[in-house]
Deep mutational scan, measured.
Amino acid sequence: QKTCLICGDEASGCHYGALTCGSCKVFFKRAAEGKQKYLCASRNDCTIDKFRRKNCPSCRLRKCYEAGMTLGARKL
């Protein structure tokens, strides 16, 4: 079983350049394409896991970029 690099849930494949679950794939697409700016209410070090991935979109998006996700990457 492969694990999502963002939240640790079961990965569905390589999306936008990183091994992710469906939830993180859709989140990244919407967040990266959108005009909304996300700000962390804490210290930009929130725990992003399967159960808390929706708590801080700022840290989740940062983790996506750190994992190498880009909109230009093709699905592998």
Rank of each mutant, 00 (worst) to 15 (best):
K50G: 07
L71S: 11
Y16A: 03
A18R: 05
A41K: 04
T3I: 13
T3Q: 11
V26I: 14
R52L: 11
C21Y: 01
L76S: 09
L5E: 10
A41F: 08
D9T: 07
P57G: 15
S23C: 06
G8E: 11
D9A: 09
L19A: 10
K35M: 14
A32N: 11
C21M: 00
L71D: 06
C14Q: 08
C40Y: 00
T47R: 08
R30M: 12
D49M: 03
K35H: 11
F27L: 01
A31C: 10
R52P: 13
N44K: 06
T20V: 14
H15M: 09
G72Q: 15
N44S: 10
E33G: 14
S12E: 14
L19S: 08
L39N: 13
D49W: 03
K25L: 09
T3G: 09
G13H: 06
D45Y: 06
C40H: 01
L5A: 08
K25T: 13
S23W: 08
D9W: 04
Q36M: 09
K25R: 10
A31F: 05
D49K: 04
L39Q: 13
G68S: 06
D49S: 07
I48M: 07
H15F: 08
C14M: 09
G72Y: 10
K29T: 14
K37I: 09
N55H: 13
D49G: 06
K63Y: 02
A31N: 07
T20S: 14
G17M: 05
K37P: 13
S58T: 05
K29Q: 07
D45S: 04
K37G: 09
E33M: 14
K50C: 08
G17D: 03
K50T: 10
G22L: 07
C24T: 00
C40F: 00
G22M: 07
D9L: 02
I6F: 01
C46G: 00
I48L: 06
D49N: 06
A73S: 13
C4S: 00
K37R: 11
C46E: 03
T47Q: 10
G13D: 06
D45T: 09
D45V: 08
C56L: 03
K25Y: 11
R30H: 15
C24R: 00
K50D: 03
C64R: 00
K63L: 08
C24Y: 00
C40W: 00
C7N: 05
T20W: 02
C4M: 02
I6C: 04
C24N: 00
K25Q: 13
I6K: 00
C64E: 01
K35S: 12
T20H: 04
G22P: 12
V26D: 14
S12M: 12
G22N: 06
F27T: 00
R52C: 09
A32P: 02
C7M: 00
R52E: 13
R74I: 04
E33T: 11
T47P: 13
K37A: 14
A31R: 03
K29H: 12
Y65C: 14
A32Q: 14
T3R: 09
P57T: 08
H15P: 05
A31K: 02
S58C: 15
C56Y: 02
C46S: 01
C24K: 00
C24F: 00
L39E: 14
C21K: 00
L19Y: 09
K25S: 14
C21W: 02
Q36Y: 06
G8D: 14
G13A: 07
L39M: 14
A32G: 13
Q36R: 07
K29M: 05
V26S: 14
S23I: 01
C24E: 00
Q1I: 15
I48W: 04
C14A: 13
L71R: 05
K35W: 05
V26W: 06
A32C: 12
T20P: 02
G68D: 02
L19W: 14
A31M: 06
G13W: 02
G72C: 10
I6A: 03
C4W: 00
R52F: 07
Q1S: 11
S23A: 07
G13L: 08
C40E: 02
A18W: 00
C56N: 00
C4Q: 00
G22C: 10
A18P: 05
L5G: 06
G17V: 01
C46M: 00
K35N: 09
N55P: 09
N44F: 07
C14P: 11
S12A: 11
Y65G: 05
I48T: 09
A41I: 04
A41N: 07
T20C: 13
E33V: 09
S12C: 04
N44L: 05
C46I: 01
G72M: 07
C7G: 01
G13C: 04
T47K: 15
A18Y: 01
T47S: 12
A31Q: 10
L5Y: 07
S58Q: 08
G22K: 08
K50F: 04
K63H: 03
D45P: 05
I6M: 01
F27Q: 01
D49L: 03
C56Q: 00
G17N: 10
Y65L: 09
G13T: 11
G13I: 03
C21R: 01
K35F: 08
L19I: 12
S58F: 05
K63C: 07
C40L: 01
K37T: 13
G8P: 01
C56T: 02
A32H: 05
Y16P: 03
P57E: 14
R30T: 13
R74Q: 14
C46P: 00
A73Q: 07
C46H: 04
Y65E: 09
K50A: 06
E33L: 06
V26P: 01
A18D: 05
C46Q: 01
K37Q: 15
L71A: 07
G72E: 15
R52N: 10
K29A: 11
L71W: 07
T47C: 09
Y16N: 04
Q1T: 15
A32T: 15
A31T: 14
V26G: 13
N44I: 03
